[in-house]
Design a protein around this nucleic acid. Sequence first.
DNA 1: ATGAAAGCGCTAACAA
DNA 2: TTGTTAGCGCTTTCAT
Lengths: 348, 348
Amino acid sequence: MAVSLKDIAKRAGVSQATVSNVVNGYRPVGEATRARVQEAIDELGYTPNLSARHLRRGRTGIIALAIPELNNPYFAELAAAAIRAATERGYTLLLDYTDGDRDKELLVADGFRAQIIDGLILSAVHLTRDDIAGRTSETPMVLVGEAIYHAPYDHVVIDNLAASREAMRHLIALGRRRIAFIGAHIEADRAPSLLRLRGYTEALAAAGLPFDPDLTVTTSGFGRGDGAAGMRALLTLAQPPDAVFAFNDLIALGAIRALHDHGLRVPDDVSVIGIDDVEEGRFSIPTLTTISPDKEMIGRLAVEKLLDRIEGRPAGPPAAFQPPFRLVVRESAPSTVPRQASSSSSSS
Amino acid sequence: MAVSLKDIAKRAGVSQATVSNVVNGYRPVGEATRARVQEAIDELGYTPNLSARHLRRGRTGIIALAIPELNNPYFAELAAAAIRAATERGYTLLLDYTDGDRDKELLVADGFRAQIIDGLILSAVHLTRDDIAGRTSETPMVLVGEAIYHAPYDHVVIDNLAASREAMRHLIALGRRRIAFIGAHIEADRAPSLLRLRGYTEALAAAGLPFDPDLTVTTSGFGRGDGAAGMRALLTLAQPPDAVFAFNDLIALGAIRALHDHGLRVPDDVSVIGIDDVEEGRFSIPTLTTISPDKEMIGRLAVEKLLDRIEGRPAGPPAAFQPPFRLVVRESAPSTVPRQASSSSSSS
DNA sequence: ATGAAAGCGCTAACAA
DNA sequence: TTGTTAGCGCTTTCAT
């Protein structure tokens, strides 16, 4: 059995309460006493038993970040930022991953592991508004991610409408006219792709370009394979697209691969743009033009807002927070309109 | 305050012990009693308080997996496997990431968060043998990853020597003669790249090929940028390589990008092979030939061995476990020898 | 400034 | 088969 408060108290000849106060500093402790206690702590090598502390305090010091998939580097980068932020604030961050499975998302939102965590940052994909609204768990929660719920929770997400418009403007400025969107989803009202899709159609309208339903491709997942399949479908069209706006970078990368397999060149024949700015896109061939959300800030903000709620700081009513983003132009959709076939120009 | 054992006991008119037994099943409980208790549990919505349980049992049900970086998809995939395995066994897996920082690795190994975890799976990069040997923490630990320590801990890792030899045999069978290795490390005796490097030299010797020190490139990290930088260095050689064996896929992918920037073609001018089989390499241009370790089994085995120690199952002395791997041939180093070998030193 | 003592919710040893 | 009871190690009144 490890060294306990009691051991220290005995050794230092004081009460447990005093030791506790030396450790936590809730009440002032006399200088001489403090020194004696500290010495005992050092000698015996005491570390507080967290389970006991948590039992007593009713909090665990653990918060969870639930993400759909670890394999998407976007989430890996987001998680890294959140872990940093939590650690700085003295919390431990537990990564829960839901596998893009609705039941698991429900389970997590509804208090699975609630006993172990003080709060939850949830990046849901499949949850419905009712799922969120009907949540019974009392555990503080902050929402992250593209799906919209209009639910009474803080929500951290970039301005997807503006981001999509900017991506589209870039493509349109390049002279592209048949721009496809890969990564739409079936769910009508709160799908992750909702705002990005709206940005897509609005940008088309603003540029006076027709909206062709054939150019909007639905995918089941969010990975490279989905992007490749979506692109292959587009390539069967009588009039294939001359540009692709992908829901995210992984889909964009998959689309590029499918174009390559089909003997088409990016960006000469087709321009491609994604969203996320994962590192992979800085080294891919071609490198990927993308919208880069401030992932560090997203993670940080989500943690902060959650801790505000947990620690009962005045935080006002639930609100939406929009970290910045910026357009990063790379080879897959460069600023200069592609002249002819000529590749292997490099610019990292 | 949430519903407690006591509440259930009162409601069902039984003792706390009985409720505990119907929840945990340590002792048999009468059918009628069980039903009554279960009903009370359902009605009141009881979930055990884990802090209390852990305080009492002396275990938390949490194990940690410490990895150098989350951004490397290899570790993300490994973590996913470990999380699955832990969850199945009723444990929660906490991801700790050390940032490839020696101090953080030390901290983790030496019992940071020891109060909260029952055991640790450590994938260290920078730790020395002495660091490991001098560990004071009592927390059970299992080692994962390429670095060798000959320390008294279970260690799960593929047979890196055999894997490297197989990768090299493939390159040599292609007719490659100047094969470079990117991703060596300074530390002499237990660096992650040690065995892979030895496999490289042994394979050269076995094929009667000369070992040219210029073709072995040291990198500080393990990412795409390191691979690209390493490749650029190789391309300044008077006689650049005609093939690259990379320490891992990310380095290989970075090397491919650098070759592309240099106007060289993969695999026509230079063949490239990596290790890890990350998903990215199945969609990259060109797709990546690689050694695919069984990540699912690595994660699973590490968790199992750790739980054996934690739960005191007879596990014998610490041992090494070698999950299988296989060569996956893709475009960057196809089986058929490239035809028009134009691997001159034309563009440099 | 310090101490004594009462639990937080649970499990396990001992009784019945 | 079930109940009683004693803590696990800590924080926190209430006294002093």
